[in-house]
Nucleic acid binder design. Structure first.
Lengths: 202, 202
DNA sequence: GTCTATAGCCAGATAGAC
DNA sequence: GTCTATCTGGCTATAGAC
């Protein structure tokens, strides 16, 4: 068919990568055009400007992150296992979270459309996490008594903070330490309910 | 005496505020000069350029943060109390941490001197936190068995991640939830060792 | 030591040829 | 629909008067 869509998609994909690597403010239309291998005018044919292009790219990045989160949080295993799986899921530690990264960008916070997208993205992961923690507390997999909303936020914060600390150190080590510490803290009330599996103790 | 130092200090103080509010990349020498009320040339008389000015300002910001952290972590109360005090210490949630903020700035990570300052700053808080958690585990105030380095990193990550989530939501609520969740998770092994104080239960 | 003026560069956006 | 050429404005830095 026409390669009209190809150009548009190439612009979005290049922007997605740049948004992740450099953030919004530091991503110039010039760099996008160079990366996508198209001329100046093409971008302004498909998008009204930098903001709308970034919005489209950010939405896809957010969807990708959310899809991965949902895969583990709604995946197999008990609720506590799934939370641990979420904590241990993260990759590309030094590149950071493509969603959380945007929260540190001054230009993002000054742009209403991007703020809304950012807020929505986190609200959706938060809802997933609250749901699983609720489930864990009901099933006795995690000790009740603390609001699920608080524990969910702590888990999200450990991940986001882990990225910050890793980037500051120029090493993935802080991220991994923070996750290990969080997993160790996640209360396992009485004893592991399953004992059928072969020596899964760590 | 001469007001030579006054101009230099005013430049640094203005830069400190701008670094905190907008980050490094978004802080232009022009804005600093306007804020400090001096002309273009003055800045280049006292500093070689933006980098050196930012370095001086960042150092003072980091020292201020570290001084506050040390005040609570080496302050009164049992070790677990001091960790909780650190978690609950944070202010200006939406402005973020003046140190952690720098880790999200692409220009900072591309500048060796600023990277080093950033890394050092976190290493120093980390060392304080490890020390207190070690103490807490030795005294039985926090359950042993998990490396202090891991737990310390988790605490730091909750705070840094709390800032990220709060900025993304445009509200301090996520930060406060994350901290409450973390405090609830901090293991208190047997029973509170002190009972002499009057109704200090929350 | 402080100022104004200005250089050179890159940003985001537009005009108009093909 | 895609391109090249160009506009305006902000950035970091320098020159040189006072």
């Amino acid at each position: 068919m026409t390669d009209t869509k190809a150009t548009r998609d190439r612009l979005i994909d290049t922007t997605r990568a740049l948004l992740w690597e450099r953030g919004y403010a530091a991503t110039s239309p010039r760099a996008v055009l160079a990366g996508a291998g198209v001329g100046q005018g093409s971008m302004y044919h498909h998008f009204t400007g930098k903001e709308q292009l970034a919005l489209a790219a950010f939405e896809r990045n957010a969807d990708a992150v959310l899809t991965k989160a949902e895969a583990v949080l709604h995946g197999p295993g008990g609720p506590r296992e799934r939370i641990v799986a979420y904590l241990e899921l993260q990759r590309d530690v030094l590149k950071g979270c493509p969603v959380g990264r945007m929260a540190g960008d001054a230009d993002v916070l000054a742009t209403a459309s991007l703020c809304e997208m950012l807020d929505t993205a986190f609200q959706r992961v938060r809802a997933l996490m609250v749901e699983v923690i609720d489930e864990a507390q009901t099933s006795g997999d995690i000790a009740p008594g603390t609001p699920a909303a608080d524990l969910a936020e702590t888990v999200l914060a450990v991940v986001q903070g882990g990225y910050v600390l890793a980037r500051a150190a120029g090493s993935a080590d802080p991220f991994e330490r923070a996750v290990r510490g969080a997993v160790a803290l996640l209360p396992r009330p009485v004893a592991t309910p399953r004992k059928s599996k072969k020596g899964k103790r760590s």
